[in-house]
Amino acid sequence: MDRRDFLQTAALAALGSVTAPLAAPAPGMAAGKGEKNAMKILVLTGSPRKNGNSTLLAERFMAGAVEAGHSVTRFDAAHSDVHPCIACNSCGMDGPCVFRDDFETVRGHIIPADMVVFATPMYYFGISAQLKAVIDRFYAINGRIHVPKRAALLMTYANTAPSQAAPIAAHYDVLLEYLGWSDAGRVIAPGVWTEGSVRDTPYPEQAYRLGAGLRG
């Protein structure tokens, strides 16, 4: 699929959520139980808030995934140094980037990962700029990540209209279509605005069960 086809295939997708508390793993590698079918999972978070609602969903997902025996790496885009892509094409879509920054950590984990999880708040009807910068840098590893992987979306937003969440869901869907990845589930939490307000909703449990239900 060329660049024009990639841009033209975006279409709005139907929204949905998936369905104990455990202590969430700290950022970085969390060792699972070493089961035979354990997966390597990379969780990319996009919230600048230390206790953001989407971050809480990510933590609950990670807790479930680790309990299920998987190995999880968490990369907090908003607290890392990732320069936006400048379309210089020096990488040739499959080579070193001109910027030597924290994206190298992402590169080292996403290529061997079996699953990639995107956790983001809605910022002005889109993915947070910090997470979007990481996704844009996928361009430099394009040739290495066009392989079958699973993915999941964890998303929070202040309003409640499903139509307002549709652009992020559509971005996620077309990204997976382009890369050849399969959707393993999504948790979309509306009506959460203030920091931590998602705690009083069913969505953290849904995120946890999504992680806990994964099988390699």
Rank of each mutant, 00 (worst) to 15 (best):
T160A: 05
V174Y: 05
N159L: 07
Y178N: 06
P148S: 07
A165G: 06
T160K: 00
G143A: 04
Y178A: 06
A161Q: 12
A165H: 02
P167S: 04
A169N: 13
Y172T: 15
S163H: 00
I145P: 03
V174N: 14
E177K: 02
A170Y: 04
R150I: 04
A166G: 05
Y157K: 05
A158Y: 02
L153E: 09
A161D: 05
A152C: 12
G143V: 02
I145T: 11
A169C: 12
N142A: 07
I145R: 04
Y178G: 03
A166Q: 11
A158N: 11
M155E: 10
Q164N: 08
P162F: 02
L179A: 09
A161W: 08
L176I: 11
A151D: 07
E177P: 10
K149P: 08
L154Y: 00
L153G: 13
P148H: 15
I141V: 14
Y178H: 09
Y178W: 11
R150S: 09
N142C: 11
A165Y: 01
Y172N: 06
T156S: 05
Y178Q: 03
L176C: 09
A165C: 13
Y139L: 09
Y157E: 07
A151R: 03
A151G: 04
Y178P: 06
R150K: 08
D173V: 15
F138M: 10
P148T: 03
R137Q: 05
H171C: 11
I168V: 15
L175Q: 11
D173A: 15
P162M: 09
I145Q: 06
L176Q: 01
Y139P: 01
V174G: 01
A158K: 07
T160R: 00
Y157S: 03
L175M: 14
N159E: 13
V174Q: 11
G143M: 02
Y139W: 13
L154T: 05
A165Q: 04
Y178D: 11
N159D: 11
P162V: 11
S163K: 01
L153Y: 01
A152P: 11
P148W: 15
A152S: 15
A169D: 14
D136N: 06
H146V: 04
G143F: 01
A140P: 06
P148K: 13
Y172S: 13
H171K: 13
S163N: 02
A170W: 08
Y157N: 02
P167F: 04
L175K: 08
N142F: 15
A166F: 00
E177N: 08
V174M: 14
F138H: 02
S163M: 07
I141Q: 06
T160E: 01
Q164K: 00
L153I: 07
A152I: 05
E177A: 01
R150C: 10
V174T: 14
D173S: 10
A161Y: 06
T160M: 05
I141T: 08
A166R: 07
T160W: 00
R137F: 06
N159P: 02
D173L: 15
R144V: 06
A170D: 12
V147A: 09
V134N: 14
D136W: 01
A151I: 14
S163C: 02
F138L: 08
H171R: 07
V147W: 04
R137Y: 07
P148A: 09
F138V: 12
N159F: 00
A140S: 14
F138I: 05
L153T: 12
